[in-house]
Design a protein around this nucleic acid. Structure first.
Ligand SMILES: [Zn+2]
Ligand SMILES: [Zn+2]
Ligand SMILES: [Zn+2]
Ligand SMILES: [Zn+2]
Lengths: 146, 146
DNA sequence: TCCCTGGTGAGACATGATCTCAATTGCGGT
DNA sequence: ACCGCAATTGAGATCATGTCTCACCAGGGA
């Protein structure tokens, strides 16, 4: 198990939740795919790897992980089903092409300062963030001048 | 009609889409509510204001507006339906409490520089962004010391 | 050992979103 | 102002997605 994975398991335990087989399996699947899975993707993979796990548990786990800021659902393409992204270190950033749905991930966000300011201003305790830019990727931009 | 609304209508036209009654109605509803509406909210309001507009058109319009970066679907509470936020000036920022689902909006993001860097680095043309922080609001943080 | 609580799987169920297709409409061209 | 046509629409069937219920189980503490 990777360091990141251990951190996540730790977070589960610290929050007082049991590390059950269903939860570990689903977390592992998310890790292995590096995020960006729809609920359908997760369901399919769970069914292939551990068919004894029910669909309700999959959704329950995804909700739990979301509350713990381990993952975050986002709407990549059209508005139907969310895509879950892992939040290693609490954050994730990507660019979404609104024409072809291509996703480009990037690392640096320089948001630590803003995060601090917000915590003080609103007296909140922040555990993660998601930053999405959207526009046209190089391919689609070339095709649609102006 | 507000300046912002005119800008959005312009964006529709520029992209080569017709300004139909359905689209204008739905856009107006979004404007009036200042964003943060679920598809159910929009459907309900459409039904109250212009019952002749069909469900399908509502979803089609929301998808179109999303592609045009006029709005953006996001996953606020643990319900499975997206909440759409308006993107005045192309961006929107908020904090979501992962315990009580409270949403706190904020204005400043200081992301212009990063946006520029990304455009150059990946040769993309960016039209907007969404920044979400997650954590506990003041209320929930007080209840869960740690 | 016996509760008690949190967690689970199966499947029925309720919403939410899509599809199809004929009818209509916005808008550019005349 | 009119025409012609592709874009867009509305109704309802249909499909997909996520929720609920409930009996059952595992594990920790008395
Ligand atoms: Zn693209
Ligand atoms: Zn970040
Ligand atoms: Zn809260
Ligand atoms: Zn911004």
């Amino acid at each position: 198990m990777s360091d990141q994975a251990n951190l996540r398991v730790q977070r589960l335990r610290d929050a007082g939740y049991k590390l059950t087989n269903a939860r570990l399996t689903i977390l592992t699947i998310l890790e292995q795919h590096g995020g960006h899975m729809t609920s359908a993707d997760v369901l399919e993979e769970v069914d292939a790897v551990a068919p004894e796990i029910g669909r309700a548990s999959v959704f329950r786990s995804l909700d739990l992980f979301t509350r713990l800021s381990l993952i975050r659902p986002t709407y990549i393409n059209d508005s139907s089903t969310p895509t879950y992204v892992l939040l290693p270190g609490g954050h994730h950033h990507h660019i979404i092409c609104t024409n072809c749905d291509r996703v480009i991930e990037f690392e640096d966000c320089h948001l630590e300062k803003l995060e601090h300011e917000l915590e003080q201003k609103f007296r909140v305790r922040l555990t993660g963030h998601l930053l999405e830019f959207y526009g046209l990727c190089d391919n689609c931009a070339a095709r649609q001048p102006d």
